[in-house]
Simulated scan of single mutants.
Amino acid sequence: MARGEWGYSGRCSYKRTTLIVCSINIVVALYVLRTLYTSLYMYPFSDAQTTFKYTTNQIRKMEESNQIRKASEPTELIELVKRLKTKFTSEERVVELPPHLKQKLMREILDRLRSLNAGANATQQREAVESWRKKKLKEAKKLIRGKTLNSTILPEEAGAVVRALRSDWDEFSDEIGLWIPVEIINKEHNDKPEGEEDYDIEILPGRKLPPECHAELHTDYDGLAIKWGLTHHKESAYDCCMACLDQAKRAKPGEKKCNIWVYCPSETGCYSPDIYQHKNQECWLKYSETPKLNFKDRYSESYRDAHPNAPVIVPWVSGVVST
């Protein structure tokens, strides 16, 4: 009997303990809920209730700070950077002429030069090319406006032609090797002695070359290189010729003596069918028992067809000297 009473009493004690624990949990849960509700009430999500109000003096100081900051900005530098960025972006958008169109324009220029008299001077050559350029520009502009013309260029090529012959004319003429020397004319007086020959080399920058240099414009002679022009630069064709003559005088017994000089007067460099990039002021000193021409005056059409990068006119200046 005592044993049964103990079992019944144990069951009551277990229920009482469970009830107490549940009550404690309920109390704790209510406390947590109350804490959360209090936090939401004290710090609501509405920004309107937490907006900080600045005083008039604070607002005035902030406006002054903004004015000082704006005044200290390098506006001129920013505008310059914007203009440069626009310029570079527009230059990057320039489309290079297609090879077939470039060849077409080069042939037309060459045909225009060939139509001149054999004795045409530099001024006449330049005027002929300029007349062709203006005429071709008019044709291209009319094609852009939709007019039908008997032209050598197609309507879809007109825009590229206008750009090449107007805004990019200097770059285009340099690229095709159109180098027409400036003819120096002295209108005030002529102090050249009667009977003395005129030397076309006077149109080159620098001092006048003496007769023993035998200078030839738009000419490239072949020969064994004594001085490589890639690392041997001279300020003028005169200096290049003098270097050749000086080497021949100072050559030791058994050494090759320079009897050919080849100079690049073009500021954009000179074309050559090798792997090197030939720059302005290159001076090549060469030797050959029987000097032979590489190129003279103009590159042939067949050669330019085989070498698309070749310009129309030979850019080099050469001479065979007597040693």
Rank of each mutant, 00 (worst) to 15 (best):
R69G: 04
R69Y: 03
K70T: 15
S72I: 06
E73G: 00
E73T: 05
L77I: 11
I78P: 01
I78A: 01
V81E: 09
T86Y: 14
K87N: 07
R93D: 14
V94N: 14
V95A: 15
V95N: 15
P99N: 11
H100E: 15
K104P: 05
K104A: 13
M106H: 02
M106W: 06
M106P: 00
R107D: 10
L110G: 04
R112P: 00
S115K: 06
S115Q: 08
L116A: 00
A118C: 05
G119C: 06
T123L: 10
R126M: 13
R126S: 11
E127T: 07
A128T: 07
A128D: 03
A128R: 04
W132I: 00
K134R: 09
K135V: 01
K136F: 06
K138Y: 10
A140T: 08
R145I: 05
G146Q: 01
T148E: 10
T148M: 08
T148P: 07
L149R: 06
L149S: 07
L154P: 08
L154R: 14
P155R: 13
P155L: 06
E156D: 13
A160S: 12
V161S: 02
L165V: 05
L165W: 04
D168V: 08
E171R: 09
F172M: 04
S173C: 06
E175A: 09
E175F: 01
I176S: 02
I176R: 01
L178G: 00
W179Q: 06
P181K: 07
P181M: 12
E183P: 10
I184T: 09
I184C: 14
I185E: 14
K187C: 09
H189C: 15
H189S: 15
H189R: 15
N190F: 14
